[in-house]
């Protein structure tokens, strides 16, 4: 048994230490967003955020994330109360099959947390490890730009409410 911190909650997990984080998230915690794409760290569809950084959960053994904060797409928001990045992807209709999208969103989210106003070139460079086969790239880029604007607005709004 080990304790895994996911989306702000502690979970007791009964899994072997070498189990990739992806399998624990999907099976033990029944979280759908992180996807199995290659198991080789080549496609990014399993991307989650660990302590603020985008991580490929298919090649990250459980033992390496013990005590760290893991965030999955489920931890950002819901259909009823979507996070800015989720709202942006909905508003831009940035999916075809959508299988790669959760990974794209988590990598973009990690970028926006560290750099709230990235340039187009920075977004493209950041998303380089993540593959999309449907060719939804133009929409993904637009959605990340939109998310940055939404976050900016949300920050401004919360600043006002604090004042």
């Amino acid at each position: 048994m080990m304790t895994l911190k996911v989306n702000g909650r502690d979970h007791q997990v009964d899994a072997e230490a070498d189990t990739p984080l992806l399998y624990v998230l999907r099976n033990d915690l029944a979280l759908n967003a992180a996807k199995f794409g290659c198991g080789l760290g080549q496609c990014g569809s399993c991307t989650v955020i660990v302590d603020g950084k985008a991580v490929l959960s298919c090649v990250t053994p459980l033992v390496l994330v013990e005590g760290k904060q893991v965030t999955t797409l489920e931890g950002l928001g819901t259909v009823a109360t979507p996070a800015p990045i989720q709202r942006a992807f909905m508003e831009e209709q940035a999916a075809q099959c959508g299988y790669c999208i959760a990974g794209m969103m988590m990598r973009a989210q990690a970028l926006l947390m560290r750099n709230p106003k990235p340039s187009d070139a920075q977004i493209r460079a950041e998303l380089e490890p993540n593959l999309c086969r449907c060719g939804t790239h133009m929409r993904i880029l637009r959605a990340v730009h939109r998310a940055a604007r939404l976050m900016d607005t949300a920050d401004a709004a919360s600043d006002r409410s604090i004042r």
Binding site: N27, A33, F36, T78, V79, M90, Q93, G98
Partner: peptide
């Protein structure tokens, strides 16, 4: 341009694929 009905689940971690069946 009606928004796609399947996208909200796909961007929030809803069960959307056969891979997600348990």
């Amino acid at each position: 341009p009606v928004p796609r009905v399947d996208i909200p689940a796909k961007v929030t971690g809803g069960a959307a694929y056969v891979q997600d069946m348990r």
